[in-house]
Simulated assay, not measured.
Amino acid sequence: MADEVDVLLQMWLNRWEQIRHSEVQRSVTSNMLLVLVGVGLGLIGQKGLGSQLLPVTLGILASGLFGMLLSVKYYERFRFHLSEAAALRAKLDERFPAIELESSRSYLNDDQARNFPLLIKIRLYWLWLAMHAVISLAGASLTVAILF
């Protein structure tokens, strides 16, 4: 019995490690893209908007689109590992009903919703998507400004 519980706990911890790893990867890649976009904008600021900088503006546009794709993919991985962790937690709750894992989680979720009724509705990945969408719009706007 203890071996089964150890396996469940280890699997549950591994899911959370994977969730953290995905979040770190998302953060690092987003930061790298922001640095590249900053360099591009700095170059545009120095040289002015001209046709020779069209590759830079297209790069900014592409960076934003790529960032959006990465954010969605990392969110998909997050949801997958979260679902796995939830299934493992349910097995632990089923195995040890006295510790009331599921009811504790449910209470904490309800408490969070009471304390932050507006923020609870905003998904974090929407904010990452919005940031990358703004980058894409900036790249598209600068590209249009060069072309027309």
Rank of each mutant, 00 (worst) to 15 (best):
L118R: 10
I122K: 12
V5G: 03
L82T: 09
L70H: 05
R89M: 15
V134F: 04
S27T: 15
W128T: 14
L36Y: 12
V28Y: 12
K121I: 15
S27K: 10
L137Q: 10
A140E: 05
E17H: 12
E76G: 08
E100K: 13
K73N: 08
D93I: 01
S103N: 15
L92E: 04
F66E: 00
L119N: 11
I146G: 06
T29P: 01
L118F: 11
L9W: 07
M1G: 11
R26C: 05
F66Q: 00
W12K: 04
V134T: 09
H21W: 14
Q46N: 08
R123H: 07
L119P: 02
L108F: 10
Y74L: 09
I122P: 09
R20F: 06
E94A: 11
D3K: 11
S71I: 08
S103A: 15
R89I: 07
R20P: 01
H21K: 15
A138D: 13
K47T: 03
V35G: 00
Y74S: 10
A90W: 04
L129G: 04
S136D: 10
E23T: 11
R77F: 12
D110F: 03
L58I: 05
K91M: 08
I135T: 13
R20I: 02
L49N: 02
P117V: 01
G50R: 07
